[in-house]
Simulated assay, not measured.
Amino acid sequence: MENRINIQEVAPAAYQAMYGLEKYLSTTKIDPILLELIKMRASQINGCAFCLNKHSADARKIGETEQRLYLLNAWRETTLFTEQEQAVLALTEEVTLIANHVSEATYNYAALFFDEQHLAQVIMAIIAINAWNRIAITTKLMVD
């Protein structure tokens, strides 16, 4: 498989805008492990090999376990994830699979764990990784 267009070179201002969102997310109240779980789960759903490779390595560096990474795609079938993580993973799935919309039940469950500002940050993190997945998949960004 061959890379397609390199958006970072062709449209650097657009890429910098995306990096601006990432910089913002790094300053939020989102727990770094939870942020990596968001990135991993959306990337699993979207089939983004580049992002899965990057974020599994990033998650390990900050202490995420191999077992939880291996079981992330079956998080409902295990007790390894906290209720907060489960709420965010459910929200991540529904935002990623947006054609089915985000249910009131899923949104309200996530809202139990966060104030409005923190929930907004979680939603933006989900949106950001979905955008990165779409860039990587469309341009066929390759895993090194």
Score class of each variant (00 low, 15 high):
42 A>N: 06
43 S>L: 04
43 S>N: 08
45 I>G: 00
45 I>L: 13
46 N>A: 10
47 G>E: 09
48 C>N: 05
50 F>R: 06
53 N>Y: 11
53 N>A: 14
54 K>H: 10
55 H>L: 10
55 H>N: 11
56 S>I: 12
56 S>L: 14
56 S>C: 11
59 A>H: 02
60 R>I: 09
63 G>E: 10
63 G>M: 13
64 E>W: 04
66 E>Q: 14
69 L>F: 05
70 Y>M: 12
73 N>S: 15
75 W>K: 00
75 W>S: 01
79 T>H: 15
80 L>Q: 13
80 L>R: 07
81 F>E: 03
81 F>G: 04
83 E>P: 00
83 E>T: 00
85 E>L: 01
86 Q>H: 15
86 Q>G: 08
86 Q>R: 15
90 A>F: 00
90 A>K: 01
91 L>I: 01
91 L>G: 03
92 T>D: 03
93 E>F: 04
94 E>I: 02
97 L>P: 03
97 L>V: 14
97 L>T: 11
97 L>Q: 14
98 I>Q: 09
98 I>T: 12
99 A>Y: 10
100 N>G: 12
101 H>F: 11
101 H>L: 12
102 V>G: 00
103 S>M: 10
105 A>D: 14
107 Y>T: 03
107 Y>H: 12
108 N>D: 12
109 Y>N: 13
109 Y>V: 01
110 A>L: 03
110 A>S: 08
110 A>W: 01
111 A>N: 07
111 A>S: 12
111 A>T: 04
112 L>A: 12
112 L>N: 15
115 D>N: 15
116 E>D: 14
117 Q>G: 11
118 H>W: 05
118 H>A: 15
119 L>E: 02
119 L>C: 07
119 L>K: 04
120 A>P: 02
122 V>C: 03
122 V>P: 00
123 I>D: 01
125 A>R: 01
127 I>V: 15
128 A>V: 11
129 I>C: 05
132 W>Q: 07
133 N>H: 07
133 N>I: 04
137 I>C: 06
137 I>V: 15
139 T>N: 11
